[in-house]
Structures are given as structure tokens and as C-alpha cells.
Amino acid sequence: MPTVTMTVNGMQRSGTVESRTLLVEFLREHLGLTGTHVGCDTSQCGACVVHVSGTSVKSCTCLAVQADGADVTTIEGLANGTDLHPMQEAFREHHGLQCGFCTPGMVLSAVDLANRNSNPSEHEVREWLEGNLCRCTGYHNIVKAVQAGAQAMGGGS
């Protein structure tokens, strides 16, 4: 079985996986990083979004071996110690989460948007979130949170 090594939330992590092991399975089951969630099996819901080398990726649609050597950030690695990342803080401030299950994917997807566009319009946010499903919020407050978070990030993180 192949061995993979990647930087996860700033730490080098290795593991022996099956060739078919998904990145999300490696994160959740091998590394115990259960903040990344699985909400579907057709790459639709986006609950599993992480950053791979700075870009948002659905970790259910990426093999662990594909992330070999990559720099992976999960929701557990976003805050700076006890200080929430500005996007996390914006979700809290604007009530952009309810049950919390889609939240890790939403936040990491939003950070990727903000890295590209520091002042996204409501329309741009809604279009960007095409790959992230939420059943609780009706997206209203998520959109507000993403706009506020992007502004707070000042265009880069």
C-alpha cells in the first residue's frame, strides 16, 4: 500500500493508505481530523472542502495519494491559536451557521473566494457557493458573513 506524506495544518503527516483512500478518509480516519465532513457521495454538497496548496478542493473527490507532498489546510488549522480566522469570526458574527455540518466546507470555500476577491458582491458570493449546500440558513447569513469576512481579510490570508 502506498505511503503518503503531506503537510496538514502546518505539520508534516504521513500514513499508509490504500490506493483508493480518499483525502477526506485520510484526514478523518487516519489523522482524526473530524472537522472535515462528508455529506454526500456525488461531490455535490461541499461539506468536505479543504485547501490543497491554497485552493479549495472537495476532499471526497481527491485521492489521498493525489495530495502526496501537498500543503493541506483543514478547518482545524484555520484559526491562529484561540484567535479565530477573520472568516470564522465573520460567520460567528453574522450567524452564518446553524447545525454546523456544512460550516467547515463553507468557511474554507469562502476563504478561497476572499483570497481571489476581497470585495465580492452578493451575486458573486452566491455564484461562488454553487458547490456548497446548506439546509439550515437559507444562505442569507452565509452570504453576509462571506462578504464581511472577505473585507476583514483585506484580500489575502
Binding site: T34, I75, E76, A79, Q88, F91, R92, G100, T103
Partner: peptide, 19 residues
């Protein structure tokens, strides 16, 4: 009031059944 729940959900420390 901002929610007590949010810090754990926003930092990946929620504890759902599959976790």
C-alpha cells in the same frame, strides 16, 4: 447574543455521531 455553539463548529471541534 452570539452563539455559544459556534466556536466548536467553526473550528472543527463539533462532535457529530460519525466523529
Amino acid at each position: 447574543v452570539k452563539r455559544k455553539e459556534d466556536t466548536r463548529f467553526l473550528t472543527g471541534r463539533g462532535r457529530y455521531t460519525d466523529d
